[in-house]
């Protein structure tokens, strides 16, 4: 009996937050309507914007996979001077206001020596896809780095030691033992980073209003045409994201 009341209380409390999270989304879908969502998805401006958002966030994740995962491994496996400071610095992007991050990126990559150098090698940040990717990456990279770090920490270091005694070099050990065994945490981190990137508005709008990513397009439609025109784009973006997320999780569970 006591167990039952415990469960009822917890279920009640849990359902409050589930409702809070689900009601706005369900309401959005309901008010827009399925037909309207599919019509919006066929609109060139909308699907190009959604595709740009998905693509930019994906490239941001890809870049951090090649740079942040090795960093996460170093942090998880080695003790070095300034490690705690580095870990704190990596969390800063999560804490700062996103518009402030956009300003910081603008100052860093569009002015001064760094800006000149990047411009010299052909990397322009203002109103370009590169700018969008960098804004997304700046604010969401910690999700992947921290996820990978926790994943590597969970991999028993003895697996790596044994693999070395069996003839594997450090790089081979990383590729054949550490990475596959930390796969789930890395994938979760990558999904978190990607999803965070999809929703990025503050920093992106400062770096690149055009080409319009979905959050900017929703804001633009809302500002210029009102709720009636922005809601279908918002619902379309959410629907596409949900479908992609469910597919990736399903594939990951199957593999």
């Amino acid at each position: 009996m006591k167990d039952k009341s415990f469960l009822i209380v917890f279920l009640f409390l849990g359902s409050i937050i589930v409702l809070f999270l689900m009601v706005p989304i369900m309401n959005l879908f309901y008010s827009v309507g399925v037909n309207n969502i599919f019509e919006t998805l066929q609109d060139k401006e909308t699907y190009e914007s959604i595709f740009l958002t998905l693509k930019s966030s994906f490239f941001a994740v890809l870049f951090v996979c090649f740079t942040g995962i090795p960093l996460a491994y170093l942090i998880a496996r080695y003790n070095f001077w300034g490690k705690s400071i580095l870990e704190s610095l990596l969390d800063i992007p999560v804490m700062v206001p996103h518009t402030a991050a956009g300003i910081a990126l603008l100052i860093s990559f569009n002015h001064g020596y760094i800006g000149d150098f990047l411009s010299f090698i052909g990397l322009e940040f203002i109103d370009t896809t590169i700018g969008i990717i960098s804004a997304m990456m700046f604010l969401s990279a910690p999700f992947l780095i921290n996820g990978a770090k926790e994943g590597f920490k969970k991999v028993d270091i003895k697996y790596e030691h044994v693999a070395q005694t069996l003839g594997a070099s450090k790089l081979s050990v990383f590729l054949s033992i550490s990475l596959p065994n930390a796969k789930n945490d890395i994938l979760n981190g990558a999904l978190m980073m990607w999803s965070r990137g999809l929703g990025e508005f503050g920093a992106v709008v400062i770096i690149a209003y055009h080409p319009m990513v979905a959050p900017v397009l929703i804001y633009d439609k809302f500002n210029n045409f009102g709720l009636k025109f922005s809601a279908p784009v918002a619902a379309s973006m959410i629907l596409v994201s949900i479908c992609l997320f469910l597919s990736i999780r399903y594939i990951n569970n199957k593999v």
């Binding site: 697996y159 030691h161 070395q164």
Partner: peptide
């Protein structure tokens, strides 16, 4: 380095690769 020594190692908890 350990990968060049040709020494086998068996840990107490065996450390079999889970993947």
């Amino acid at each position: 380095s350990p990968n060049k020594r040709d020494f086998g190692f068996v840990y107490q908890d065996f450390a079999l690769f889970p993947n």
